[in-house]
Each structure stands twice: as structure tokens, then as C-alpha cells.
Design a protein around this nucleic acid. Structure first.
Lengths: 218, 218
DNA sequence: CTCCTAATGTACGAACCAGTACGTTATTTG
DNA sequence: CAAATAACGTACTGGTTCGTACATTAGGAG
């Protein structure tokens, strides 16, 4: 009965705010894409889970593909900024590798949606990344860090010299990504949930050990 | 004008053969699912690429989900039989690990569609595998082999004793799967095609070295 | 206060797509 | 060889889904 005034409140409470609407759409879309995949996700469903309408999605993002592009851009930006904060130049090279592996491990462990989005983008052969100048030019701070660590390790005679930073990055990513990305088939077939906390610390140490033992073996 | 007889020939040339039709559908479906993902693949398109019709797909496989289940069953069966042929009990444990890693590496390298199908199934949270008794019960011969190798390595005092066969299998799979599954985003962002032959041998040795150095470090 | 534009909402359409009703032909069995 | 059944084909439908035409309102500029 007091509806009219409460409607008015709801309306004015919902002040027009482009940034806010855009951000809310992106958040919801990220969850929905990660949950269902690109082709499985529904624009109508994303809109329904937002406090705005489908029209707004097309107003801000033109189409479903472009929406996915911006979802990806956002997801990558998060991990890149994390990596940038990594300061390991003062550490022993082996310990620096352990820190880097640990950081990657933790990020993937706590951002399964990011891992899923990347998997989905790979199924689509990275066509969205290719269309994104932001992502094509986004260098990886972790690589610079890694390059310096490897150089120091080699100079100290601790590390082998037949691997480059990208190889090491790949090996670390592979391990961390697999635990999250392939968790379901792995669990279904081997009956072991890789994300079970019981394995967490063990696996976290395992990536680090794998890389350090590899690098220090000649 | 000579159509009737040539039609008849075309018709009788296409002898009814359930097994053959089924197999052709499965092959085509596997390619199509691997190419476009489960939701991206079209039943009409699969049918069009077959010498039969959509009706036959539903005749043999009931629905799209069941078709995917059987595609997966087939794909897994191939690698399982490969692993079964692996005989490394006569080898030095470290060398046996290298052989196993090499076999896994080669299979993933030469069967990108298999890797993609697994990725797709993970996006769908292994719901199809769960529905397949064949897959749920399909043990992994590689695990038995691996268990024996690890036991021998430990007895010989060569291997560490804080890892089990499944951990090692995971590490190997992670590396091999990543190269194929994440090749596109990796290439887009780092401008390195992991499947470039130039890296093939290097990476093949790298997985083996990673595992052996890890296992032999205490 | 008025005008202009950015922001938002409603309703709809055209294409698409999984699945099916119905009919036909080959092959096997008795 | 007849009857039964397995294998196959055509044409269609009902529901879905991306995208848009059109209408409206809020808020800032002057």
C-alpha cells in the first residue's frame, strides 16, 4: 500500500551510474561465463542476475563476444598486478623460485573462475584475446622477475642454463592450472579431489620442489 | 536421365551397416565437439558432415549429451590401451619414469582433440563422465605401472618417499596437457607457440628431467 | 528553468537448434 | 518367400536466444 513512495525510493535509490552498472554487468558476466562457458552462458541470464536489463549489456558492450573480451581483460589485470608486487630480488635464487611458485599456486587456488575463463578462451582458440589490444600488449611482470632470478641463479652456479624464463613460467602454470582446470575429470576418474585441503600444502610444496630440484640439477 | 539406375547404385553402394554408421557419427562428433565445444557444436552440423542424417544420431545416441558421453568413452579408451602396452619393469626406475613421461607427452602431442575434449568436459564439471559407467570404472593402467616404478625406486634408495603415484601422474599430465590445452592463450600473450617443433624435444626432455630430479632429491 | 544527451527500460523479431512424428527401405529370420 | 524388424530419410515444431526498434527518464550544461 505504501508502494508508490517505496517505488520512488527504489528508483531514486538506484541512481544512474554508468561505471557502477558497467562493473556490475562485468562481475555477473564473469561468473556466468566461468560457470557455463561462452556458448553455454546466456545474455538474458546475465541480465537477470544484474540490477539492470539486457539492453544495458548491449549498450555498454555491443555484443556477447565483446562482453567476454572485457571480462577476460579484467581477469588478467588482477593477476598481473599481483605479480607486480612480487619483490624477490633480495632472496636466494632458489627461495625466490619458491616464492614465485607459491604466489602462482595461491592465485590459481583462490581464483578458479579465472582458470576456467582461460580454459574457455583456449577452447575458442584465444580469438577474444586476439581482438583485445589491452591483452595483446599486456606484458607479464612475472616474466621479468623470473628472468632476473634465473640470471642470478646461473651466475651463482646454482641453476642450469638450458631453460629460459618462459619455460619455467610454463611449468609452474601448468601444475597450478591443472589442479583447478582438470579437477573434475581427475576426480571422476581417480577419485581424488585435488583441491581438497588435505593436498593443498603438499602440492604447494611439490611445485616449488619440482622446479628447484630441476633447476639445480645439471 | 540415367538417374534412376545411378540412384539405385548409390543406394545399394551405401549398404546398411549399423556399426559403420555409428562409428562414422562418433568420429565426426568427436572432431566437431573438440572443435567447437559441447554447446558450440551443432547436431545438424555433425549430421551434415556424416554420410547419414540427424535422425540416425538420435537413433543411436538418444540425445546430444549421450553422444558426447560416448565420444569421451572412445577417446579415453585409446590412451588407456596405449598405457597398457607400456612395459618398463625391467628398466632402472629413473629411466622408467622418463619412458612413462615420454609416452604421455607423445600421446598428448599427437592427440590435441583428446586434450580439448577433456578440457570441455571439465568446463562441464565432468557431468558426462559421471553418467558413464564405462568411464567411472575405467582404471588407469599407467597408475599401476607408476606405483611399481615408485616402489622400486624407493627400495633402491633412489626416490623420495613422500609422493604417491597419483601425484606423479598429475605432475606429468599437467605439463603435457598444458602445452596443448593452453597453447592459444599462451601464444597470444607470450608470443610463443608451445607446439612449435623447435620446442618439442626440449619440452619432452624437460618433463622427464623435472620429475626425475624431483624424485631423486631428498 | 530548459534543453540536450547519456542512461535506462520494454517489447519484440528472426534465426537457430535440439529433438520428433511419420514414412520408407533393406536385411534377416522362420 | 513372407513377415518382422532393424536401419534409414524427410519434414517439421516448439522453444530458445542474440540482438534491436522504440520509448522514456535522469542529470548536467547554459
Amino acid at each position: 500500500m505504501a508502494a508508490p513512495s517505496s517505488d520512488a525510493v527504489a528508483n531514486s535509490g538506484r541512481i544512474r551510474d554508468a561505471d557502477r552498472t558497467r562493473a556490475e554487468i562485468l562481475d555477473t558476466a564473469a561468473r556466468e561465463f566461468a560457470e557455463k562457458g561462452f556458448d553455454g552462458a546466456r545474455v538474458d541470464e546475465i541480465a537477470a542476475k544484474t540490477r539492470t536489463t539486457k539492453r544495458m549489456i548491449y549498450y555498454y558492450f555491443t555484443n556477447k563476444d565483446q562482453l567476454f573480451v572485457e571480462v577476460l581483460e579484467r581477469a588478467y589485470t588482477v593477476i598481473r598486478s599481483l605479480e607486480q608486487d612480487l619483490d624477490v630480488d633480495h632472496l636466494d635464487p632458489a627461495e625466490a623460485i619458491r616464492q614465485l611458485a607459491g604466489l602462482t599456486f595461491d592465485h590459481h587456488e583462490s581464483h578458479p573462475d579465472f582458470v576456467r575463463l582461460v580454459s574457455i578462451e583456449n577452447i575458442h582458440r584465444a580469438e577474444h584475446i586476439a581482438r583485445s589490444t589491452a591483452l595483446s600488449n599486456l606484458a607479464n611482470p612475472a616474466l621479468d622477475v623470473l628472468t632476473r632470478i634465473l640470471a642470478r641463479g646461473r651466475e651463482a652456479g646454482q641453476f642450469r642454463d638450458d631453460v629460459d624464463a618462459l619455460d619455467v613460467h610454463m611449468a609452474i602454470s601448468a601444475f597450478c592450472v591443472f589442479r583447478t582446470a582438470n579437477r573434475y575429470t581427475f576426480n571422476a576418474i581417480f577419485d581424488r579431489d585435488m583441491l581438497d585441503p588435505a593436498f593443498r600444502d603438499h602440492h604447494r610444496r611439490m611445485v616449488a620442489d619440482l622446479l628447484v630440484s630441476y633447476l639445480t640439477t645439471r
